[in-house]
Design a protein around this nucleic acid. Structure first.
Lengths: 333, 333
DNA sequence: TCCGTCGATGACAACGTAGTCATCGGCCGG
DNA sequence: CCGGCCGATGACTACGTTGTCATCGACGGA
């Protein structure tokens, strides 16, 4: 600005005024300054501006488990859009399975003075969080709860989604329904398994030996599925995309009578699969948007009591979940 | 820092020394300061630090078309990882189909003094770019070329990938191969179509009426496919995920003789589809990493001549591309 | 004992910007 | 013609931090 001021034959303060569109500058002066700005290629230093103004940085941070992955990327897209609509920029970081890395990201974002944080990595224990999250930084947990419920959180209706899946299968007449989930370390895995168990109990369905968590490798999976088949299982609920894909692979490579299948979390190609896969669709966009809404409310009113938002899921019935005695449904040819 | 200094009974400068781990502070003093820091919950203001030091902000900006989408999210993940490994933070933004929005993002990132920019939105014309990209901000174009080749760029080997697909089909004995691409406005669409035409010409294959761009809606697509079928087409190459999925939908809903099919860009479920889809896999991770490498080289040596990196693709042959006279390959049951 | 040296510390300025207040010329009404 | 007022502008300072340099006490060697 000093350089611009010199070039325009004015003072640095007047340049500041022009840059910020403040009134009370002669049009002629404005033009001189703007010409100098254009000539010198001047750009205001936002960081210095924020520092002087003492205002926010107009940015929020998003800590994820993994930026790839359809669910998280859909969430990210929704978050970025909501933030952008409010004039905020988004900083993103992946924990990539390392809770310590997540902690460092939180600290780095806090040091950059983001106005708020969205935290999603599923492997992060609360100790990592409380150790790294400064108490004065507004934060919302995404797709994972806060142990002490002192932080805002946005969750998918895991239990409800699984319940819908089980009820749908039970409604089709299935009595022996198995559950294939991802690793027990993930909160969502436990949550969905518990939802499965609860719903089965409610409906009087058996669950002994019908739940497998974390064995998604071909060998482990084959063992589980074969056991289930021998046990008269006619339907399987898969607890996340990884489990769904693993089961699809297994069924693809071991042709034969196909159990009914409902997968948690939508797949892009669900309705092009053969048979099209019945899924419990999570509302990734809704989750992202709700999280940003919550975050800005908290930024606006830090004294708000902690809130928990549960975003509903939607059961999308396709053809992978017919009644048990029906012949496996394939495309007519 | 002033508050901390007062609490620790020292000067603000000594606090700075402790915070930055500078030598020459008595251990006793260090401890007093650290206690004060902990008590007051002090965190250094990175923005002010960067301002004073005149150093970089240790951040880079990534402007995408759309943060969702498997290709872009894979690229983003790779970019973030590479940046993080270098101690850099990543700012992300989506253009969402609006070139003007992309321009605003570029300006916002530049005003934040990111150390470099990765720019990918495919709808952005060069005028938008040059109008918004300050000449002194290092930038790398991702998955799109710079018209004047004065900016570094990382591209997927579109022509090579399509050529591999066509050659594979020709090798299987197909003579009438059609090409289904996305909207012509996208540079990659045009690029891949041109690759298709070039390879067909090279192999002496006909292309008249065998190329359809942008008609991915059910009606338009059905018209194209029916025309092709009547015209004796036995194989189709789809130019991106959208086209692949559109064709898969169409074939799914119109059972009958199935043309051989090779899709550009990998699909998560390619090998669970029926038949498993032969694809030209792009190396999203490699593209992201190459872009970051290029960016940091340019940041390090701004005078480097502009470079263009082409990341190879890989043909993954599955069962959707059998010879023309073979019965459509389905799973054995 | 004196001086040079060294370790520890603090005072001050500056990074780029914006808020506060003073200055200055011209204009109006009396 | 004069005092007050207003529009336009600039000087100065502070935001939170770090680089530079000065200060000050202690210590070792002559």
């Amino acid at each position: 600005m000093v350089d611009v001021a010199q070039a325009a034959g004015t003072s640095q303060k007047t340049v500041s005024r022009v840059v910020n569109g403040e009134p009370g500058v002669r049009p002629e002066t404005v033009e001189r300054v703007q010409r100098a700005i254009a000539e010198l290629g001047f750009r205001r230093h936002d960081g210095a501006s924020h520092l002087r103004r003492g205002t926010s940085t107009a940015s929020i941070g998003l800590v994820l488990e993994d930026l790839a992955g359809s669910f998280y990327s859909a969430v990210t897209a929704a978050v970025e859009r909501s933030a952008r609509e409010r004039g905020y920029l988004l900083l993103t970081g992946s924990a990539d399975g390392d809770p310590e890395r997540a902690g460092r990201l939180v600290q780095a974002f806090a040091a950059r003075r983001v106005d708020g944080l969205l935290i999603a990595p599923n492997l992060v224990g609360d100790e990592v969080l409380t150790a790294n999250l400064p108490p004065d930084v507004p934060a919302v947990l995404l797709d994972r709860p806060s142990a002490d419920h002192r932080t805002d959180e946005v969750l998918s209706d895991n239990a409800g989604g699984i319940a819908a899946a089980v009820r749908h299968l039970a409604g089709q007449g299935h009595r022996r329904i198995a559950y294939l989930g991802d690793d027990e370390r993930f909160w969502t895995s436990r949550q969905r398994r518990d939802g499965f168990l609860a719903t089965c109990a409610e409906l009087g369905l058996p669950t002994d030996g019908l739940v497998s968590l974390g064995a998604l490798d071909p060998v482990g999976l084959a063992a589980a599925v074969n056991g289930w088949t021998a046990d008269g299982v006619t339907a399987v609920v898969t607890g996340n995309n990884r489990a769904s894909v693993a089961l699809l692979h297994h069924l693809h490579e071991h042709p034969g009578p196909r159990p009914a299948h409902v997968g948690f979390d939508e797949l892009d190609l669900a309705d092009v699969l053969d048979p099209p896969l019945t899924t419990v669709a999570q509302d990734a966009g809704g989750i992202g948007q709700a999280a940003v809404d919550l975050l800005f409310e908290r930024i606006g009113t830090p004294t708000l009591p902690p809130r928990s938002v549960v975003v509903p899921t939607r059961l999308v019935v396709r053809r992978s979940s017919p009644p048990p005695d029906a012949a496996p449904v394939r495309n007519a040819r």
